[in-house]
């Protein structure tokens, strides 16, 4: 009974929130676009040609660094939630899926790299690439749980932290030449690509660990 009231209340609130928000958002007229003009002025120094990538990895790289931290943090938080039981994980193992995955996984990995690289001139980048990679790994895990290779815990942890670590290292190096995460012009594209590559691997590992850790629980 209480649940029902709660639900209808929720529905009511959500409805009005939606109506109100759409009314407001459609009526907004942006006052100042100075940030956009500044963005386009700064683009030549950013090292990439795509604005989103430039914002994420150069102009506002700190946000990205912190977000990478958030993702690593969420993995640690999942560790904290680790329940104490054991059960056999899901698997969809048969010949058809096996063969399919044998072809599919390399394709997914390749596509991830493409997305990563293309991030510098079109939509894409490390986050999408790592999500793809993680998806691939999870499919692999679901279909071929026996042949699935899990490295040692410490190595895995190195992999998890490598993205944040590399990002912070780049920041520290850049401190010697300017401010934190300051890289411009000719060197910028190198830094951005290298950060993106490391991020893709480490975020891919973390994202797939969400799933694999959850289903491959062993009693401590």
């Amino acid at each position: 009974m209480r649940n029902k009231t709660f639900h209808s209340l929720l529905y009511f609130l959500a409805f009005w929130l939606f109506v109100g928000l759409s009314f407001i958002l459609t009526n907004i007229n942006t006052l100042d676009s100075s940030m956009h003009t500044k963005l386009f002025e700064a683009m030549p120094h950013s090292g990439v040609t795509h604005e989103v990538t430039a914002v994420l990895l150069n102009f506002r790289a700190l946000d990205t660094l912190l977000e990478v931290g958030v993702i690593l943090l969420s993995l640690i938080a999942i560790h904290a939630l680790e329940p104490n039981f054991r059960y056999t994980p899901l698997s969809f193992e048969n010949t058809i899926t096996n063969t399919f995955v044998a072809i599919l996984f390399p394709l997914i990995a390749l596509y991830a790299f493409y997305i990563l690289y293309s991030g510098s001139y079109q939509s894409g980048g490390a986050f999408s690439a790592s999500a793809l990679l993680a998806g691939g790994i999870i499919i692999l895990r679901l279909v071929k749980p026996r042949s699935f290779f899990v490295p040692k815990e410490l190595i895995l942890r190195f992999l998890y932290v490598s993205g944040l670590f590399y990002f912070v290292c780049v920041g520290m190096i850049s401190l010697f030449f300017g401010s934190f995460l300051e890289y411009r012009d000719y060197i910028a594209s190198f830094y951005i690509i290298s950060i993106e590559s490391v991020l893709m691997l480490s975020l891919g590992a973390i994202l797939s660990a969400y799933f694999i850790n959850a289903v491959q629980r062993v009693k401590p």
Partner: peptide, 9 residues
């Protein structure tokens, strides 16, 4: 951060 002035950085 990154040497970019306020509105942008």
């Amino acid at each position: 951060f990154g040497g970019w002035q306020a509105p942008l950085g």
